[in-house]
Design a protein around this nucleic acid. Structure first.
Length: 156
DNA sequence: GCCAACGTTGGC
DNA sequence: GCCAACGTTGGC
């Protein structure tokens, strides 16, 4: 496996966990991902040191609000075994975990939000395949190329 | 709050 | 293995 730094975009609802929350705690175990494709990106793709575009969804101005760093490779998400958790999965067994998470570290908050609106206007430069703006995409964890990373942050 | 676009579940 | 019903995401 390559050790070259990779880039990702991770969505969160600011009412639940915002960039300001991440800044306060420093490092956060990214629990609650319950989508297989998103899980596979964390499990099979993420390496310590990878870059993360921190995205706010389900809010007045959806968009990229900060950057973060991957602090751990994937390990089992403990909330899947916790009956009191919203993320409890009765089908997950400790000897056969179904869901994983990674630790995400605060890097910086952008000077301003790079709004989804503006990102859509850059569709051509970002490439047709950019899944954040692909029709109907709902993935909460998705890969970003080095060129897309550079282009998106140049919009700040 | 609405609803389109998906993903998952479960009966058959 | 099909597919209808249901649940979720997330922009608007």
């Amino acid at each position: 496996m390559s050790t070259r730094k990779r880039y990702w975009l991770m969505k969160t609802e600011p009412d639940t966990f915002s960039i300001d929350d991440l800044r306060k705690v420093g490092v956060e175990p990214w629990n609650g991902v319950r989508n297989y494709q998103a899980r596979n990106f964390m499990r099979d793709g993420m390496q310590v040191g990878d870059g993360v575009l921190f995205y706010h969804s389900n809010c007045p101005v959806p968009g990229i609000v900060g950057t973060a760093t991957i602090k751990s490779t994937a390990y089992p998400d403990p909330t899947q075994f916790d009956k009191k958790s919203d993320y409890y999965d009765p089908k997950a067994k400790p000897e056969e975990p179904r869901w994983v998470l990674v630790d995400v570290a605060f890097e910086r908050k952008l000077k301003r939000t790079i709004a989804l609106d503006e990102i859509k206007q850059q569709a051509e430069a970002l490439g047709e395949g950019f899944s954040l703006i692909a029709r109907g995409n709902r993935l909460s964890v998705l890969p970003v190329t080095a060129a897309q990373w550079k282009h998106l942050l140049s919009m700040e």
